[in-house]
Design a protein around this nucleic acid. Structure first.
Lengths: 109, 109
DNA sequence: TGAACATATGAGCAATCGTTCATATGTTGG
DNA sequence: CCAACATATGAACGATTGCTCATATGTTCA
């Protein structure tokens, strides 16, 4: 007779967040799961930056950066303001730094 | 004449971690970037669990869970111990909880 | 030892992702 | 208004990903 875990599962299930939230969490971390986007977030760590400066910094095309900024913005990880022709992006809140910081600690401990 | 940012870039560049670390960070978050793996980590939040219990809980095949546990283990996010035929997995360290916790906060604030 | 159970693994496939390329939108100064 | 600049966007393509299916490995007990 195979292994039984009804009791355990009932308990764990009760403590699990909704499927929707778990999906959203996965989607959020997916945004962190790309080197280009990590670099962009690090670039914005101390101050806002315009799109072409980020592209220069990462030696990538303006288009690639713009696509990634759109992803970051959709996840509310960056925000932007316009000043003439230029659009400046910045980190949207402190969670970005603390999430990356925790990841950094996990890697370097 | 296009927009110039030599000064800014020099400064930002000096503060950026190495490309290798940035790559590793992206790879780490990629592991968090999947609903199945998030669910597994949540299931292990309070206590260790065997593979078949996780499969039951998530209503997925043993094979799918096993593949994902391998990914989690490669990233040092879970650890395991054997007890007879059964193998129990647990969260490897506190960073898992704090990373997920920060993500949770970002979503629900 | 061999049958039953628990887990791991490799190949294959559909789906998703990140970039490029071409082009569109928006802004400013002459 | 139009040329130059800054950014955004859509289609397309190669690469990566997560699952399934079949099967292998490892463990226990009769």
């Amino acid at each position: 007779m195979p292994h039984n875990h009804e009791e355990l599962l009932k308990h764990i299930k009760a403590d699990m967040p909704s499927d929707e939230l778990l999906q959203d969490l996965g989607d959020l971390f997916k945004v962190f799961g790309d080197t280009t986007r990590i670099k962009i977030m690090y670039a914005l760590y101390e101050d806002e930056m315009c799109v072409c400066a980020i592209a220069d910094l990462l030696k990538m095309t303006q288009s690639a950066i713009s696509h990634q900024l759109k992803v970051l913005k959709a996840a509310n990880l960056v925000a932007s303001r316009r000043e003439g022709k230029t659009i400046y992006y910045r980190l949207a809140d402190e969670h970005v730094k603390s999430i990356i910081g925790q990841g950094y600690e996990h890697l370097t401990e």
